[in-house]
Design a protein around this nucleic acid. Sequence first.
DNA 1: ATGTAATAGTTGATTTTGTAACTAACAACA
DNA 2: TGTTGTTAGTTACAAAATCAACTATTACAT
Lengths: 143, 143
Amino acid sequence: MTGKDDFDLQYFLPYLLNQAAEEASIAFQKVYKSRYGMLRTEWRVLFHLGRYGAMTATDIGERARIHKTKVSRAVQRLEDRRFLTRERIAVDRRSERLELTATGQTAYRELSQVAQDYDRALMSEFSAEESEMLKRLLVRLAK
Amino acid sequence: MTGKDDFDLQYFLPYLLNQAAEEASIAFQKVYKSRYGMLRTEWRVLFHLGRYGAMTATDIGERARIHKTKVSRAVQRLEDRRFLTRERIAVDRRSERLELTATGQTAYRELSQVAQDYDRALMSEFSAEESEMLKRLLVRLAK
DNA sequence: ATGTAATAGTTGATTTTGTAACTAACAACA
DNA sequence: TGTTGTTAGTTACAAAATCAACTATTACAT
């Protein structure tokens, strides 16, 4: 015991953030997993395409900070399930334009709505100022 | 476009928490990974034993909310590296008392110090009130 | 034009996690 | 004592993440 041993894991920010993230994610995860058989990365890719429109895999990776192999596999699975289509881009045939199908858009709208409701429920634990503050601080941390 | 499409992933709490957690964890992760070849669960187990003294795997799992298979594997690896010892408990021979070796304690002290410094550096982005508020809100979220 | 480097995306090998089933020990109770 | 149920911890197998190497294409410099 060195005298500096009063440091508690409870208050170590990375630990705290991970615990909170896990706790906050779990119930929503069950929705996209059970209802659509989706993984987290797939839900994110779906969301990006639904919310911001057609784009390439690299675009998604940059926006969402997801590694390209994860994006690649998520796109593959979403295509298998007919949630999106790919189209080689003429001016740069290495990349492809990803776009949601009607099915994909429906899934996006439904999940997006669930997410909004879920978010509101989570935030209802806090006052308006607290919610605002929390998100603001988290945005700063996430850079 | 339904009119409710103004919902942005940026402000979806689970997403935000995950991004912040990832960002906040990465640099510290490199320390225990490169310096001790440890995984996150191993660092947590080590920390619990160092901070709170000898206990069983179940105790650790409950305190840190880690599933028993993860604890089991972390303990195994920590034992392999001579960071801890096991001893069957006489009154209940199913469970074992886990205790850090001298090597384990040294690693704990060093990592614990790094963690404290790291935490302070992270929090230095914020004012004292903001830091306090952030942690308080996160504790509530993590339940 | 041609060689070299960079980029988009995929694939394969390895590591790590998650889930379920398992063994061993204990508890409770007829 | 024997039966049934529970708990501590491990193991096996499947699912997923990580990392490096790979193909195809484009960009750039000579």
